[in-house]
Design a binder for these strands. Sequence first.
DNA 1: TTGTACGCGTTATCAG
DNA 2: CTGATAACGCGTACAA
Lengths: 342, 342
Amino acid sequence: MSKSQKSPVTIKTIASEMGLSFSTVAKALNEDPLIKEETRARVQEKAAEMGYFPNVMARSLRNNSTKNIALIFNDIENPSLAHIFGRITKEMGGHGYSTLICDSQYDTAVEAHNISTVLSRKPEAVIISPVTSDPARLRLLKNMADRVIVLGDTLDGFQSNYVHVDYVLGGYISAKEMIENGHTSNMVITEPEYCPTCRQFIQGVEKAYREYGLSLDREMIYYCPPSIENGRQYVMEQYGKGGSFTGVITLCDALAYGVYKAAAMLGLTIPSDISVIGFDDYALSSFAMPPLTTVCLPTERIAERCAEILNTKLKGDSESTQIFSIEPHLVQRKSILKQYKE
Amino acid sequence: MSKSQKSPVTIKTIASEMGLSFSTVAKALNEDPLIKEETRARVQEKAAEMGYFPNVMARSLRNNSTKNIALIFNDIENPSLAHIFGRITKEMGGHGYSTLICDSQYDTAVEAHNISTVLSRKPEAVIISPVTSDPARLRLLKNMADRVIVLGDTLDGFQSNYVHVDYVLGGYISAKEMIENGHTSNMVITEPEYCPTCRQFIQGVEKAYREYGLSLDREMIYYCPPSIENGRQYVMEQYGKGGSFTGVITLCDALAYGVYKAAAMLGLTIPSDISVIGFDDYALSSFAMPPLTTVCLPTERIAERCAEILNTKLKGDSESTQIFSIEPHLVQRKSILKQYKE
DNA sequence: TTGTACGCGTTATCAG
DNA sequence: CTGATAACGCGTACAA
């Protein structure tokens, strides 16, 4: 759709401007010791003056190394993911890598599109937090599976590097905390149903319920892309229907804040009227009113593991794949009311 | 440092595999009507099967259009910036553009490095929130200034597109709110001094002080990259020195939360012991304890303006530059104590 | 309908 | 020390 590039300054431009052959210029710019000191200096000066920058596309084409790493995240505005990719860009930027970012917006079609876009860019590694649970949808990544890092759940049938987060445990912890505080009738608000992490989470919740001889009412589970607005909406909807619940279990702090918002609009108080538990533990969640009880996703460790895998991969060392597992943990604060047994 | 690319499937690979010439394959893949329907179908099928993806590098080289847009932000974990670039990636992703991200970490050296990296990628547009106030440091971008969007303050001597945010007004609003509530002795915590936005902000604060016949104590101004930790540290430091202040004016909600944290650690209460005003208005700031009074940076409008400029630019329409100005506004909540006049 | 030749900006190899 | 040339993968005139 566009041409632009007013002044594509290339080694050839410089060469003709200086009456040299372009290959001399190339060598001068690459500090080739064969080039006379004085020539080199002159060329470099001229290049700087003309605003020359090597064309990485051409270079990549030539030596088949793009220095690109791609991230495909399902919501880059999520502070936890933002923190992870922030860490990664900083780390990789230092090593001369550029970071390509895509946001799948919890939409499998967008995700598919992102995968294609990214693959056309021939990245040397891809980090993806997949929206889909279907490994077939990642088949396009199979050619480079050993340089892919999957965040979240492990996908059977897709052999790759994983930084696996135990969402079953996460769901279990959440539900258990609610139940132990006396909340046996809870709403659950999670990600879209097709997300791998969602399934795991629900599984964990059900496990906790079973242990206490309770059963999870399917009607009380809501699936949606995590956002404050979605959390607010579902709580108000359920409340409007006269649904009886004392607790809300969420798969994201953003959803938990939606509960806060709904409570404010309904004139209710947290936790005395509604208890809520989040997931992720945003940096700001300890400052909330009341401080949000949540399950902490250890983003620091996730980022470290990613960096670790990237470093071994990009050195070209191994063809094998690595799997790390990470456990979330409970952070007790003040958003759950302790109810006494009846 | 790496080669990789186990199976670089190219049109040639496909061609030889099928006993066709590579240009036939190329045309088939590009839906060229000259190619027999059946051949095209066969080729496309084979390509999909082999996991072929066009090499965008090569294509860019050929037709001089990279479909890249680059963002250079000083802190991508800042939720406000995250929101802006989220909006932009989504918008541009739909139009076939990829987004390259860099984080300058409030460091001018890193920023310079980022600019070089990005320019080597020949992006069709660059959006930058500059760390430096010195237009000379952006000279490398001059060759494509008409396709650069600068966020924040306008820089004299660098003609480009601007989405200018009136930080003078922001600083003025902040200080005025503090003063009008009876706080005449305040700490100020801002970005590093060399940041353009910082200077503007301080200027605004001073303007408000002057209007009320007060003068701003330079010793009470702290410069640092905005983070919760930095905010906490400076407040505790100042408090430890026995500094007398009742309010803290900050240039970022993150810094304000640092004040919250310091207060908690010192056993003080906000706002009765310390009043504080933020800047940015994170989505979560209304949920804080107490809800954070802050100056709202209208990220939605900023993102829209950026998109608007990008759209006209990338259509190749104009060579001219556009300037938009955006005004922040006060959001009164509960983190400032109303003091009665003595 | 299919194949050939050339150029995009680099780097690398080989001659001068 | 410097210059010429091939190749990377793709697109497109032009020839077959």
